[in-house]
Design a protein around this nucleic acid. Structure first.
Lengths: 343, 343
DNA sequence: CTGTTAGCGCCTTCAA
DNA sequence: TTGAAGGCGCTAACAG
């Protein structure tokens, strides 16, 4: 008993039969192979068009061992930063005839593993990954390596030696940010940083310190607080900073959300924004323009461009332009964007 | 000459050879088929584990004619609304063992067509689609229908008779919104609506009118303005509304962005928000909580839930629980969310 | 309980 | 210029 699976979609076999020629001739005709007679070619193409023939990609994937699909694994699709990043990835993949398989880990390591597993089974040609907040075990990526599936990490990259990665170094932007504040006359500049373990937090702190050094100013460790990015954490950090003996007149916050929370706190304390206290932040969101008191400046991290860069790196790997073990680590510079001050 | 494509990944054939049994036995053992001896099963599984065997999905897709993949076509990934929607889609798909192929049309009809084409070639089992702003030709969806690939439209649904669709009716939410304002004593309620052609604009207008009717109030067409959702458009609309003889004390805006622009305009005109003028909006964004003057209430459109619902509908179609031509049109109710007023 | 075999759609070598 | 045949990895029908 023959099972019908292809829901009536025409195949080359069918075309061959109708035209009384062989399947290989049809296949070649469809591919414009030079050794096929013009007449035959025309007849084949005409019938193919008439029948609405379409090659069965799954068959081709199967026998070629390539899927022209890349897997994207991200923590959270609804975060503006990642939404932009995906957008950049999809655009680049699309214009190179690749499609994109999507998975979100929700910062859950177990789910991250499952998704990687599933992508591997789907035989994606490669992966682009931004790891979860708490991921500390990287064996799932090791499996990809063994399966010779290239991976490019971006933004949230793991602390491993031999990886392909694209990221945005926050140090440069942070230097610019602190510099900006120093030039406006601020001397006691606080920083609400993220969890100490995060690479991103380290980069922020490093930038902060370097900026001070460049101005030959003393670095006071008390001015940097590590917070957990929740509203309470931000409030606590603000309380701490505002209680310092040295009067803090400017604060660099971990991201725009923290900034907005911090602004709310400051307002409650009757502080006048941009006068008593000035905020500078990191632009994870396009929203800040709409808030009443946006940070005076923001460090842009270029998510769309990071997505593009990661995809291009992966594609060059897939094209064999670089050896898989020739590890590339593209670091893009973050950049300070000064907002309009007349609001 | 044998071409090696599978990059050395072990196959059941290899396992069979090593164990001196047949491929079908291996296949069955791996599937826990009841008719396989415990010993054999164990041996097979052990070797499979040792070799790091993993089934080649592309082979299975190919021979089963199913890919357990659904295609998502959306206008713009970086719009918060769609980002949430995708999140809902991906979560639902994932927990049903489906994966998700992604494409964004950027509201470009040609690109929309290409993506649909590509998804069809990838042999996705079904599609979830939100059409572009300007899409007026639906032949690409007709092709899907002919290929018997089910499509569920959501949010931006085409004006076609026989389709599966999930959407959120804004009429109910709008009624609640106007009702809310009427109960607070407002009588001259303006509306900055979207382009007249959009279904969503019509629903808003209809809700507005119905709410007045329910209160036995006269409907004044002058109070509804169609704008184009740009900042200038919003400013013009505001100028118009504020210049009316009847003093407008409340305004329903098309979405949160329009609301924020309108608030800015009002502030410039020295109006006091929530006193001189009150805004109610539609929640396309989770941001409004951070703005200084968020709308007093918002009509929630539940993008995540819409994504879930669309995916469930598609899955039920794929499972054959409903005939493909038994068209379902799920309309979810929008709902007014009243914000805290003590800010 | 296990083995043999055909076939999914396509491409590609080899032979004519 | 064309045809025949094999094989990609796997499943399932059929035959022991």
């Amino acid at each position: 008993m023959k099972k019908v699976v292809s829901s009536g979609q025409p195949t080359i076999k069918e075309i061959a039969k109708r035209l009384n020629i062989s399947v290989s001739t049809v296949s070649r005709a469809l591919h414009d192979h030079h050794s096929i007679g013009l007449r035959t070619k025309a007849r084949v193409k005409a019938l193919a068009a008439e029948l609405n023939y379409e090659r069965n990609q799954t068959a081709i994937y199967f026998q070629q061992g390539k899927t022209f699909t890349i897997g994207i694994l991200l923590p959270e699709l609804s975060e503006a930063f990642f939404a932009s990043a995906i957008s950049g990835i999809e655009d680049t993949a699309y214009s190179n005839n690749y499609t994109v398989l999507l998975g979100q880990s929700h910062d859950d390591e177990a789910r991250e593993k499952q998704i990687i597993q599933s992508m591997k089974q789907h035989r994606v040609d490669g992966c682009i990954v931004s790891i979860g907040k708490n991921t500390s075990n990287y064996e799932h990526f090791e499996m990809l390596r063994q399966a010779r599936i290239p991976v490019v990490f971006f933004d949230r990259i793991p602390d491993l030696p031999d990886i392909h990665a694209v990221s945005c170094n926050l140090e440069s932007g942070t230097i610019q940010a602190v510099d900006f504040l120093l030039k406006k006359g601020h001397r006691a500049i606080g920083m609400i940083n993220g969890p100490e373990t995060m690479v991103a937090s380290k980069e922020r702190a490093a930038g902060y310190i370097k900026a001070l050094q460049q101005h030959r100013l003393k670095y006071d460790p008390n001015l940097i607080v590590n917070a957990d990015l929740t509203v309470e954490g931000t409030n606590n950090a603000m309380e701490y900073l505002l209680a310092l003996k040295r009067k803090v007149t400017a604060i660099v916050t971990f991201n725009d959300y923290v900034a907005m929370d911090a602004v709310q706190y400051a307002l409650k304390k009757q502080l006048i924004i941009n006068k008593d206290i000035t905020f500078v932040s990191y632009a994870n969101t396009p929203v800040s323009g709409y808030t009443a008191f946006p940070p005076a400046a923001s460090v842009e991290q270029f998510p769309y461009e990071q997505g593009q860069a990661a995809t291009n790196m992966l594609l060059s790997l897939l094209r064999g332009e670089h050896a898989l073990n020739e590890y590339q680590n593209k670091v893009m510079a973050s950049q300070l964007v000064i907002h309009e001050e007349n609001r």
